[in-house]
Nucleic acid binder design. Sequence first.
DNA 1: ACAAGTATGTTGTAGAAACAACGAAAAGGA
DNA 2: TCCTTTTCGTTGTTTCTACAACATACTTGT
Lengths: 223, 223
Amino acid sequence: MNYFFLQNTPLFHGIREEEIRDLLNCLDAREQHFKKDEVILRAGSPTAEIGLVESGSVNIVVNFYWGTSNIFGHVEKGLIFAENYAAIPQQELLCDVVAAEDCDILFLNMGRMSTTCSKNCTFHNRLIQNLLRISAKKNLGLSTRMMHIAPKAIRDRLLSYLSEQAMKNESSHFQIPFDRQQLAEYLGVDRSALSNELSKMQKDGLITYHKNEFTLNERAKYE
Amino acid sequence: MNYFFLQNTPLFHGIREEEIRDLLNCLDAREQHFKKDEVILRAGSPTAEIGLVESGSVNIVVNFYWGTSNIFGHVEKGLIFAENYAAIPQQELLCDVVAAEDCDILFLNMGRMSTTCSKNCTFHNRLIQNLLRISAKKNLGLSTRMMHIAPKAIRDRLLSYLSEQAMKNESSHFQIPFDRQQLAEYLGVDRSALSNELSKMQKDGLITYHKNEFTLNERAKYE
DNA sequence: ACAAGTATGTTGTAGAAACAACGAAAAGGA
DNA sequence: TCCTTTTCGTTGTTTCTACAACATACTTGT
């Protein structure tokens, strides 16, 4: 078991090697290897275990009623999946989890997490805190994106997004972490239409930009 | 303090009155009254406390860079807010929390939750479990909605949503919990356009419906 | 500096959704 | 039952976006 690796995952962050050793035992940890395209967890069944990707990566796959499917998410090495289902007893998985490539998964029984509290109380608490933080971060990420996608017009979505970025940077001048394609996907619009709208906004004097460097003009306040 | 009320909130669910009493003490609980339109928490500042709405209700309000604002969410009596921020130290609030009407808020210091573990260990665990479940449920709700909004065409969004409902009910015949207006808002489309698309889908033989009662036809599988 | 590849901007068009306005059906109260 | 109000469906028009196709700028490696 590669404890150094685990220490640097968000889930075990701040927990020492010996403590992780204890925890793994406590959580009925089990490792399992999957080949590319193997189904790791299947929609429709509940799970008390979360999965931590030790190597490779996995896809979250939605299956529609009429047979087609779609990749909805992607979980990289070091990150976890199914934590939402493990936290809600009897909640069935809505998506399949499928190996995107050959991978090793560490399963941890989260039912054990809150019940057992014999000796490792401090580590337990740290682990739970980490889990809460992970969940909270995902929530924030989803909420803010939802916020930006709520308006129907591309311009409004852009203004919502850029406004948030300006606030986050506490400046009307800032850089964004996306290229055009990524920004378009994030906002759920077409890339070329996005580029087009950015041009118009610049013509209209709302913003100034070059590549991923943006400035919100004062005039943006008047519309 | 109305313990009966608290016992029936998602946060304190499954915890007995005496235990709640201890917990409140442990979490530095404090009650505060707010008048309509008073700002309860302000965007830009971090918080270690979550808020539980004891009476009235609050709005989550987004403030844009150029001064306009928008109601993004609503928290009813018995539910909590700011739990995502309290779980992430130093994370600043992205939205204001404003009293939608006169209300009483119970603030709970979540920093204390994971550190203190003197005697009430079992209650603490139950509380944390509840918090994790609340967070997980919100996550699932946001994720599934995201999933349904991902397609650009109204028909595809509807099929995605109806497909999920069919799976959840394990039947191609089911009722949905929305009226047309609510469904349109949930899917982020225009109501009349939604009605129109439903008609077309019925004409095309994909679905059959009457009011909020739907049936997915077999033919839905062939497109 | 050059070539190949990638990212971004531009334009026109076809299609789809928003919007407005109205009619029909259903629900709820007096 | 009748009236009022709300919900839902329908239609035509307008606006916006997706899409395709291409032009231009920027990177990268050699």
